[in-house]
Simulated scan of single mutants.
Amino acid sequence: MKKVLLLLVLCSGLVYGQSPYSYGGESEQDRIAREHQSGGMYDPGRSSSSGKGGYRVPTVWGAIAIDTKTFKASAWANSKKSQKDAEQQAINICKKDSKTCKTVVTYTWNNCGAVAASKATDIWVAETRQLRADTDAAALKSCNSKARSSGVVEDCVLWVPAKCALFKGS
């Protein structure tokens, strides 16, 4: 009898139409909208200091800036509080070596950005993915494909290997 009662209590959220990942009766659509508006992600598996659950993982940003005219400078910024902060820091660092830097890729929490380029031409490609190795591979593959379609036979190289925006909080 105790096992049946426990099972009913555990499943009560499902009986009333709640997702097992919802919090306080919040629908999945409401959770996604709230996360988007707050600039963070909601993790129902972690509890807050109030004990009510729902630790908010803040969104962090990264950006890569390169000199697309001379290909002599590149820089990146990671784990910034906003996209604008990440872009500005990357550009500021890049501009120490070149005046023609621009942001070519931005990425957010738990994602990476990489830039691959052809040494023989002005072809370059920026890619984002979740894993470092996947990001590097995607950048190289895209750049090589772009180079081949332009008649370039030399392989591209990683100009800026994967840089990732990771949350560094506790």
Rank of each mutant, 00 (worst) to 15 (best):
F71A: 02
L8R: 07
Y23W: 09
A117I: 09
Y42F: 14
K69S: 14
D122F: 03
K81V: 11
I123N: 10
K52M: 09
K52F: 10
D134T: 07
A133V: 14
E28C: 12
G24E: 15
W124A: 06
N78S: 12
T59P: 00
D136F: 07
G39C: 06
G54R: 00
K95Q: 14
I66D: 00
A33D: 14
S118M: 09
K81G: 02
L8G: 07
A77D: 04
E26Q: 15
A126D: 08
C101P: 02
V152T: 11
A162L: 07
S145D: 15
Y23L: 11
S12D: 03
A137S: 14
N78K: 15
N92Q: 15
C143P: 09
D134H: 08
N78Q: 15
S50F: 00
W76G: 02
D97V: 00
V157S: 14
S74K: 05
I93Y: 07
V160M: 05
G113I: 10
E26H: 13
V9D: 01
D43K: 08
P20Y: 03
K168F: 10
D85T: 06
N92P: 05
Y16N: 09
R31Y: 11
C112I: 09
S82Y: 11
T121C: 06
S98P: 05
D67Y: 04
S49L: 13
A77F: 01
I64L: 04
G13E: 01
S38W: 07
T103E: 12
T106P: 00
A116V: 05
K2D: 12
K99L: 06
V15T: 10
G169Q: 09
Q18E: 09
Y21H: 14
S145R: 14
E26V: 15
S49D: 05
K52D: 07
T68A: 13
T70K: 12
Q130T: 15
D122A: 08
S19I: 12
N111T: 14
F167Q: 11
T68M: 03
V115W: 02
L10R: 01
A63K: 01
L10E: 01
K80S: 04
P161T: 12
D134W: 04
A33N: 13
K146L: 14
I32T: 15
R56C: 02
P58V: 10
Q130F: 12
I32M: 15
G40D: 10
D122P: 00
G51C: 01
W61I: 00
K3C: 11
A75M: 04
L8W: 04
E154V: 14
Y21E: 12
A73E: 02
S38C: 07
G51L: 01
H36R: 15
W76E: 13
P58T: 05
N92H: 12
A90E: 05
Y23H: 15
C94P: 00
T59G: 11
C164A: 13
S98L: 02
Q88V: 06
F167K: 03
I66F: 03
